[in-house]
Computed example of a mutant assay.
Amino acid sequence: MIDDLYSARILGLAANLPHAGRLVRADGTGERVARLCGSRAIVDVTLDDQGLITDFAQDIKACALGQAAAGVIGEAVIGATADEITTAATALTDMLKAGGEGPEGRFEGLRVLKPVADYPQRHASTQVAMGALVDAVDMALATSLATRDIPEAERTRRAGAA
């Protein structure tokens, strides 16, 4: 069973992390830490006017499972909507904790982590990147709603001061 947990696919995803680093300007940033093992994810996103992810970066310090999840997310996230992300996060949790099949659509690659369901102590590290992504998108959407009624010149002035 441990071979399934650290399959060649999972190790390959962990070794090749798309969009590693941080964004200079982000609409939203999320950070999650798995208390048991210390795995950490910081995610930055930018959204377009329709709420689609247009830019993404991730700073991941996690075990191979957390890195693999981040690898799948990094491959699929550009162009995703907030609904797709929250649906995938819920499906990931359900897959790990309740026997669900896992995410569908653009985040279906997270199903490679289904064997982690048998190792509850590794659930949190597997979910840090997705949790940070959800938090980043939530922040970006909240910021967008808060600034929607502010004139463009004022938004530009505020952005320059940040």
Rank of each mutant, 00 (worst) to 15 (best):
L52E: 12
R40S: 03
A8D: 15
R32S: 10
P18A: 04
T54L: 04
T156P: 00
S144R: 15
T93Q: 05
A89S: 13
P18Q: 06
A162I: 13
M1Y: 01
L145I: 04
D135C: 00
I60S: 04
S144N: 12
T81W: 03
G105T: 09
F107D: 02
Y119T: 02
Y119V: 13
A8R: 14
L47P: 12
A64S: 15
R9T: 15
V137Q: 08
S39I: 05
L13C: 02
D135F: 03
P120F: 03
E108Q: 13
A8Q: 13
G21P: 01
A153N: 11
R148L: 09
S125M: 08
G105H: 11
L65C: 06
D55A: 15
R158P: 01
L11P: 06
A34L: 08
A82Q: 11
G102H: 04
I42P: 00
A159Q: 13
A57S: 13
L36M: 10
L52W: 04
M1A: 12
V77N: 07
K61C: 05
K97A: 10
F56C: 08
L145R: 14
R22A: 13
T147M: 14
L5A: 03
V134H: 10
D118G: 08
R22G: 01
G105P: 11
I85E: 07
L65V: 13
R32C: 08
